[in-house]
Design a protein around this nucleic acid. Structure first.
Ligand SMILES: [Zn+2]
Ligand SMILES: [Zn+2]
Ligand SMILES: [Zn+2]
Ligand SMILES: [Zn+2]
Lengths: 130, 130
DNA sequence: TACAATTATGCAACATTGTTGCGTTAATAA
DNA sequence: TTATTAACGCAACAATGTTGCATAATTGTA
């Protein structure tokens, strides 16, 4: 059951996320959606897109939740979102960076599931400006 | 200028944070403060304690901002907060783990400032329960 | 094409979290 | 003790996210 429907609003939201170089917050997405649907609907669409593994959720270093497409996420039918994210302190943009396999050094009584790695600094666009 | 005052509320908040094994959110801290002061005051105290490098701010994987003491943060008069944080998916607690020096693999046109590394999974307390 | 089933939406109402302004309180130095 | 001003309380507001329910729209089927 639970047949997935491809509505106009859902397509619009997904295209907005895909069309952007960097990850976007619900607020930014809703601003771009141009009143094609309600604020609440955007929340619900985002929730669905995450569940369908079309986008992934990234928490920025200030706590704001952002969304980015999952293109780079699924390799060989194995979904993983543990790539690195770069958070620019100047333009505040959050960018997905290719995989970054790291060695962890955690006490063995901790059972590791996912790794969230975000690096802050200045992105290429903003370095040029400076 | 800007003389720092050590008020009752500030002491209470700091002791609550220090007395807890894991990091705490503003909501949790205010709940423990037992109406010794206003909700807003807790926000302002937390802000000050962060500025004074007595506590540090950690964003949990769900976007909730948590606070933990800075004991483990300053080594040889050099402050750094880039240690690893463990976020338990069962009890939702956020724990500071000792330093974790990692090798990053980021395009050279990105200018790195800080590294935020959070690992999710099951903490020792919750592993025992299961 | 028409219809039924049910997913998705709009809207209102609410909850939570965080912020700001301003008059008052209280910590600290002199 | 007094003056200075950091810190506080309170009210009001803003932003973000959630829920319930009636209505609309999509999709498979007849
Ligand atoms: Zn930038
Ligand atoms: Zn990403
Ligand atoms: Zn736990
Ligand atoms: Zn920490």
């Amino acid at each position: 059951m639970a047949i997935i429907r491809n509505t106009l609003a859902k397509k619009a939201v997904f295209e907005i996320i895909q069309g952007n170089k960097t990850a976007m917050s619900q607020t930014e997405i809703f601003a771009k959606v141009n009143n094609i649907c309600d604020r609440v609907t955007v929340y619900r669409i985002l929730e669905r897109l995450v569940k369908e593994v079309k986008i992934h959720k990234i928490v920025n270093i200030n706590g704001v939740i952002n969304y980015a497409p999952c293109d780079a996420c699924s390799h060989e039918q194995h979904v993983h979102h543990d790539h690195l994210h770069f958070s620019c302190t100047t333009c505040k943009k959050l960018t997905c960076i290719a995989d970054n396999h790291i060695e962890l050094n955690i006490p063995s009584n901790y059972q590791v599931a996912e790794v969230f790695l975000t690096v802050s600094g200045i992105c290429p666009d903003c370095v040029i400006m400076a």
